[in-house]
Design a protein around this nucleic acid. Structure first.
Lengths: 206, 206
DNA sequence: AAATTTCTTGCAGAAACTGCAAGATCGCTT
DNA sequence: AAGCGATCTTGCAGTTTCTGCAAGAAATTT
């Protein structure tokens, strides 16, 4: 007998795992936001999440990972989306389109992301691991970009575009999280990509 | 009484410090290149460099730092150079010009940098810390950029340009280190910056 | 040469992280 | 409903990373 839901039937087990994982990241972010990265131990995080310290390391390889979260799934979806965009579309436009889904998810977890970005900017050691800062992700995206453009891997163009786009997303997210009443994340990303496509023209000092 | 040399009088002491530091990074890079990051302990690195493990931590805050090296000085010089470029020069051009000095230093230590880049690409955890990946550096540069453009800190443009330029330099260095017989680092950086200024146009599939 | 500063080192200890094996839980089969 | 296999949690023991402290060695200054 099935559990009832045919499509999204994660099962009690997967749910529990998700809940534990979320509890760990939540506790970690809250504690680190209060006291600072060095003043929080894994033991305290586990305690706050209601699991043993050993279990913490079953979910995350190190303390930092609990803070930045696991975005392997996001990355995979982004790559898939990018590959699905018709080849005629210019690379930057395609990347921007592929980002839609990820942006949406980030937006729905705004509070979490605000806390995360605050923690990350206050503990700069963490920043690089975010979003497309992940190297495996970048490599995967660069591969798809290379295929789109039809250029060999040595050309450097795919890596450049990927790294640059990642940097753009990163800055957009930082800005978005820093200003709760500011523009929407999607608009900030749009703005950044537009600036990229225009060759980063110097803005008027309004 | 002074030591004799007025300008560059490092003294026996400073020399020893430099030598020890270099020995530590050298040993660390060599060992990690051979065995992999996790298979090398601080004790082994110190042993190979001829100092005690405790001394290792007097030079570096953690194992990783010995591998990526300390580029605070480079960063400071870069910021100074950037501030010295006349305000009429467009931002990207100014950044490229300010990079000259750093590029030169990197070039003179090519072997070391090749080893370093190899280690870094094989242990992606390290990559973010390189060059302008450093967050403090980025913030400092962004500040100067903001002043150049005459725009308030919220505008996002300075952060965007800085992050994007950093990404460009990073990819150029990766490419440079990966191909010993390839083009010069300065040319690769030029190419990347030209692509940025042109809005990242899709290249012809030659 | 004596005094001062700076660097090195060992020691003790906290915290991060891993492998292993026992026990609990879940999901499926009969 | 009972049982079986797979998965998850946990404790334990052990290694490694990293820090504070204080004594000793080396360089610099007076």
């Amino acid at each position: 007998m099935h559990t009832g839901e045919t499509e999204s039937a994660p099962g009690r087990r997967d749910r529990r795992k998700r809940r534990t994982r979320a509890a760990l990241t939540g506790a970690a972010l809250r504690l680190v936001a209060e006291r600072g990265l060095a003043q929080v131990t894994v033991e305290e995080i586990s305690e706050a999440a209601g699991v043993s310290p050993r279990t913490f390391f079953n979910y995350f390889a190190c303390k930092d990972d609990a803070l930045v979260g696991d975005h392997a799934g996001d990355a995979a979806r982004l790559v898939a989306r990018l590959a699905a965009v018709p080849p005629e579309v210019p690379v930057l436009t395609a990347l921007r389109a592929a980002l839609d889904e990820v942006i949406d998810e980030v937006r729905t977890e705004r509070e979490l992301w605000c806390l995360r970005m605050e923690v990350v900017t206050r503990n700069p050691v963490l920043l690089p691991r975010l979003v497309a800062g992940n190297v495996e992700t970048e490599r995967a995206i660069a591969e798809v970009v290379a295929a789109r453009v039809g250029v060999d891997p040595d050309h450097g163009y795919p890596a450049l575009v990927t790294a640059v786009a990642g940097a753009a997303v990163r800055t957009a997210m930082t800005r978005w999280a820093a200003h709760p009443d500011g523009p929407d994340l999607a608009d900030l990303v749009d703005e950044a990509f537009a600036a990229l496509a225009a060759g980063l023209p110097q803005p008027d000092p309004t």
